[in-house]
Design a protein around this nucleic acid. Structure first.
Length: 256
DNA sequence: TAGGCCATCTGGTCCT
DNA sequence: AGGACCAGATGGCCTA
């Protein structure tokens, strides 16, 4: 089920659901069935009371059971649509994460997606800071202003040529991918070509520890399937010998 | 079979 | 009043 990477999930749901489908799920609901039972019993008594006031807007208490039912279906439909939109946004987030994409790769859970996204943002921020420092070092204090003016070209060059301290996420990624370097297919393989068995990432992959660990499943076998983005520093530990001045990312990720 | 993840329903609250 | 947002409850599916 989770392996379904399409924007719509494999569940019986669709963003453009209208009353029909929603009615299906609604009618299958036990609460609704109970409601129907009660409705059947009291329907005669209600009949006369609910007929009045044609045309005028009624308060909720004045609505007939049928109207209440319609209202309920409408509300349910809206809520369903809202959740679909939310899930679409979540899928959009998944797409831009440095994580394997492909039919054979299991989809990140929502919580995993959010946690990974957070770490990823922290990693990028840290990278940016390091690059700024490097640029400052290379051009010296006097040239700092000038270097700032040429920041665009310089940074883009630095991004491809300099290894940055990305240790925490890199460790996390490698805990996801596995420990053997040969298992990795760096800088080339399309994610879908990875023939690996797949499970969702664990808390350690996401760079979080005790607080989240209980929430996520543990073992992962994502052999060689995470993505390297062109122009971006590779976050893996193999590419990134950890400098002594560890970035703040780790501490940041710890005090979640 | 237990646990994780998810979709859906539902009622409450807040905002426009 | 109507809609958006939220959280709890429920039940289904999947995996270890």
């Amino acid at each position: 089920m989770d392996s379904d990477a399409s924007s719509t999930c494999s569940r019986s749901s669709s963003p453009d659901l209208v009353v029909d489908d929603s009615a299906g799920s609604f009618f299958s609901n036990t609460i609704f069935q109970k409601y129907c039972k009660e409705n059947r019993n009291g329907s005669e008594a209600d009949q006369g009371r609910t007929e009045h006031g044609g045309g005028k807007t009624k308060s909720r208490s004045e609505l007939s059971k049928e109207e209440m039912q319609d209202l309920r279906l409408k509300v349910n439909s809206r809520e369903r649509k809202r959740m679909h939109d939310l899930n679409q946004a979540m899928d959009g987030l998944r797409e831009v994460m440095p994580y394997a994409h492909g039919p054979s790769v299991r989809k990140l859970s929502k919580i995993s997606t959010l946690l990974l996204a957070r770490n990823y943002i922290l990693m990028l921020s840290s990278s940016l800071e390091e690059m700024k420092k490097l640029v400052g070092d290379v051009y010296g204090g006097g040239a700092a202003a000038q270097s700032r003016s040429t920041a665009h070209s310089t940074i883009s060059h630095a991004a491809t040529s300099v290894h940055l301290p990305l240790h925490p996420l890199a460790q996390s990624l490698h805990s996801l991918v596995g420990s053997t370097p040969t298992a990795l297919q760096h800088h080339s393989s399309p994610p879908s070509s990875a023939p690996a068995p797949h499970s969702p990432p664990s808390a350690s992959f996401l760079g979080f520890h005790a607080p989240v660990q209980g929430l996520l499943k543990d073992p992962l076998h994502l052999g060689g399937s995470y993505r390297h983005f062109p122009g971006m520093p590779c976050p893996c530990t193999l590419c990134q010998p950890l400098p002594t001045a560890t970035s703040t990312l780790h501490s940041l990720s710890m005090n979640k």
